[in-house]
């Protein structure tokens, strides 16, 4: 279950993260909600590398294959003889292969980004409208009632303007 504390500035949010870490909450369980990005480590440190690039690579390769099949494959299946020009011409096939490869790679990046960001997600989750106006949310993924209680106390002690849990949101 997620617990959210809303802070009106960066410094108090950073203090809250320090207090949570001191209280024994693992950093991997803490994340932030903000309307602008902060460099990694300003509030929490992220782990691992994003894997959405794989979608770009895989779909890019599929696009190249699709482009080649469309241009070369169909020209070969439905030959259109024009003078002594080759049935499969390198430049036109190359251009269509390239364009479809890029199209699929871009679409793949979009899909990968959405997958990496966990979107679309319309389920009710802890959130505060103040975040749009510069407030910072500290979100803790708590596993049991004791951890929820400990996190809420810690956030309150650190000066959270507002507290809410996943239960209250839904």
């Amino acid at each position: 279950m997620e617990v959210l504390g809303v802070f009106d500035n960066l410094e108090s949010a950073a203090t809250a993260v320090d207090n949570l870490l001191e209280a024994g909450v693992a950093e991997a369980k803490i994340t932030t909600l903000s309307s602008v990005p902060y460099p990694d480590g300003v509030l929490v440190k992220s782990e691992g590398k994003p894997r959405f690039y794989l979608f770009t690579l895989v779909l890019g390769a599929c696009g190249a294959l699709a482009g080649f099949s469309l241009a070369a494959g169909t020209a070969w299946l439905y030959p259109l003889q024009t003078g002594d020009k080759p049935i499969i011409s390198i430049f036109p096939v190359g251009i269509i292969t390239y364009e479809l490869m890029m199209l699929f790679a871009i679409v793949g990046t979009l899909i990968g980004m959405l997958w990496g960001m966990g979107l679309p997600d319309f389920k009710p989750k802890p959130y505060a409208m103040e975040i749009a106006n510069g407030a910072i949310g500290i979100l803790i993924d708590a596993e049991n009632p004791a951890e929820i209680e400990r996190s809420m106390q810690c956030l309150q002690r650190s000066g959270a303007q507002k507290l809410c849990t996943e239960e209250e949101t839904s």
């Binding site: 932030t32 990005p37 509030l43 980004m113 960001m117 966990g118 979107l119 975040i131």
Partner: peptide, 14 residues
């Protein structure tokens, strides 16, 4: 699409 601005969302977005 349900964007909340989590640290991971910003990282992937960037």
């Amino acid at each position: 699409l349900g964007w909340r601005g989590t640290a991971e969302q910003w990282r992937v977005f960037s």
